[in-house]
Design a protein around this nucleic acid. Structure first.
Lengths: 200, 200
DNA sequence: TACGTACAATTTGGACCCGAACGGTAATCG
DNA sequence: CGATTACCGTTCGGGTCCAAATTGTACGTA
């Protein structure tokens, strides 16, 4: 995050970020930038990376779980036996990704899949006995690190930050699709450059 | 995010999250959970995913850039010609990942690499003319979407949330290493299970 | 000059990740 | 009741992503 020695004034904290913003403004020469909004997005992602990295390297690595694998386990653990599409959505990954992760977890004996009793299209995911024991053991340690990374925030500040982030999520999930439609103006959705090609 | 029909009381907003927390508490039976801290971490990651997804699908897809590729371009754009290790750190990715991303970007004529004048080990990254034009065109649109996703937050709230997140980042970057050391108690750092295997 | 150490970027291996395409089941319609 | 239509999980292509292994450069010291 920090560079070797950029400025000369020893202003403590946030210097790097603020300086980047100033530089960005200069780069755009006159075009106004929404600073506060930019700072929120930048720090959301920065914090997400830092937190994920810390948790992977502290508690998750020891039990040989990736962040995504843990999230999937957590979702199935909390919600109980669930349909894969729900798990994917709750975990914030695509259906295709879940298929692979679930396969890995299944191979390690942590989750199991079952056919839906009445709808042949559905697959149900649930924790095995071993998976449940794992989560009961790991989650307290995970939560301890959640407390560590937020140590500089009071409970009240935690509530405030969490609420602000929740509003961001709701905004995107609520109005994002509509916004994208408006932006692209009904034009071609510009398919992802990579991805599977049509057979013909 | 939301499920079909879980609860019976029509409490608006945040139901899913809160319910998940309650379920988690029940699962742990007695073991106390730090709710506020858990909510912060959960929502940081949720927001990061949502924001990234929205930006990829709105402005980035149209110019055929992934999130990571854009971040790398942004860093080089803002900081000017930089050494790769700094770019990787600032972008929040590993050096190895940057090598691949930089190759892709170089192939598209958006960035260029140059040898360091005095230290032959270093490689410098800078934007090409085309890369600069792209960023000058794309960033305003990007910032517009940053404003969109934070639309439900006032400027003051934006500052507050950004500051809270900054404190999380500083906490992890400042004390994370020490914390991990203490946690593992000097024991083996438990190598990543995936990735390259040791030869013998 | 030769050698070891330090540190640079790159290569490599395995898992992840998205989203279009696919094949199969369920529901709907004529 | 056959034919669409809608939906579900899986497959697959291309691209990240990390960390170990590798390669190469710089620089100290003998």
């Amino acid at each position: 995050m920090t560079r070797g020695s950029e400025g000369s004034v020893p202003v403590p904290g946030h210097r790097s970020i603020t300086e980047a913003e100033k530089l960005a403004e200069a780069k755009l020469g006159g075009i106004p930038i929404r600073h506060e909004q930019m700072a929120v997005v930048a720090n959301i992602y920065r914090a997400a990376s830092a937190v994920r990295q810390h948790l992977e390297n502290s508690v998750l690595r020891g039990v040989d779980l990736t962040w995504t694998a843990f999230v999937v386990l957590w979702v199935v653990w909390i919600w109980g036996e669930s349909e894969t599409r729900h798990v994917a959505e709750e975990a914030g990954i695509s259906k295709g990704t879940l298929t692979g992760v679930a396969r890995t977890l299944e191979g390690r004996g942590l989750i199991q899949r079952a056919d839906h009793p009445s709808d042949g299209r559905l697959v149900l995911l649930s924790l095995t006995e071993e998976g449940q024991q794992l989560m009961q053991r790991v989650f307290p340690a995970f939560n301890d690190e959640e407390a560590f990374v937020t140590e500089q925030l009071s409970d009240e500040e935690c509530r405030s930050v969490a609420d602000g982030l929740r509003r961001v999520v709701l905004q995107v999930e609520g109005s994002g699709e509509e916004r994208r439609q408006a932006l692209l103006g009904g034009a071609a959705p510009a398919p992802r450059r990579s991805g599977r090609r049509r057979k013909a």
